[in-house]
């Protein structure tokens, strides 16, 4: 589904990713772990298409298409979702309006008519139920005045609404209390299907107690230095990142 080959990325002349190789297949959950400042968020942003980074070398293929030539919104419509570490506030824009615009723009890209209003509202209600989000999200402005936990839950809610093929969650667990963490993990587990995939970026092993990954990668100094099964995460937690460095 996602195939990254020898990806080298820099910002302002400073190399951050130094040759990343990553293969994600449908149905898989990958975890990318690593200390702060090793390029985890950069990798997520580059896959999503943020243009502040310079791709020096390498390629990213997504379902057979070359991603690097595509705009951010086209990548999203192709089925890539990024759960943000720090979701921004958009004052005055209700979540309903925001999601409706997003859903319909993606439908337009795929040659579909806009979703009828009643169908859309029913879908919103269904996803809220599924994720056990009880808050009255719909009429609040996007992320405005949200607590850290609410922002992250809102990211998961948006993911459920957009139903991406590949969801990349960038430190979605950071700053969450255990209840919010469970809602986030629960959301991912309920959305897992044989035809979609997740890349979960996290600093701690904690989230991986709730989302069980198929493959764990350790990113260190711009390179994936080790990949393995879910035991790798536990090993990391026990030995710390110093163990990798050594």
């Amino acid at each position: 589904m996602l195939s990254i080959k020898n990806l080298r990325v820099s910002i302002n002349g400073k190399e951050i990713l130094k040759g990343i190789n990553l293969e994600v297949k449908p149905g898989e959950v990958h975890a990318i772990m690593g200390p702060n400042g090793t390029g985890k968020s950069t990798l997520a942003s580059v896959i999503a298409g943020r243009d502040i980074f310079d791709v020096e070398e390498g390629e990213i293929q997504f379902r057979g298409k070359d991603l690097l030539d595509m705009s951010v919104e086209d990548r999203a419509s192709e089925g890539i979702f990024l759960g943000f570490q720090y979701p921004v506030e958009i004052p005055g824009v209700s979540i309903t309006n925001f999601m409706r615009t997003a859903v319909n723009e993606q439908r337009k890209y795929r040659g579909l008519d806009p979703m009828p209003a009643n169908e859309f509202l029913a879908k919103m209600e269904e996803k809220k139920q599924m994720l056990e989000i009880h808050a009255k999200l719909a009429n609040r402005s996007v992320n405005e005045g949200f607590s850290g936990g609410e922002k992250k839950k809102n990211e998961i809610f948006q993911m459920a609404m957009l139903d991406p093929s590949l969801a990349i969650l960038d430190e979605t667990d950071s700053g969450l209390d255990i209840d919010a963490l469970k809602i986030v993990a629960n959301g991912v587990n309920k959305l897992r299907r044989p035809d979609n995939a997740f890349v979960v970026i996290t600093h701690y092993q904690r989230l991986l107690e709730y989302i069980v990954p198929d493959i764990v990668h350790v990113l260190f100094d711009g390179r994936i230095v080790r990949s393995g099964g879910k035991e790798l995460a536990i090993e990391l937690e026990e030995k710390g990142y110093e163990w990798i460095r050594a």
């Binding site: 943000f84 958009i90 824009v93």
Partner: peptide, 16 residues
């Protein structure tokens, strides 16, 4: 970027 990442093009995003 946040809007774009949800599939909303820049002009629509500004409008929103």
């Amino acid at each position: 970027f946040y809007c774009n990442q949800r599939g909303i093009g820049t002009e629509s995003a500004i409008g929103l």
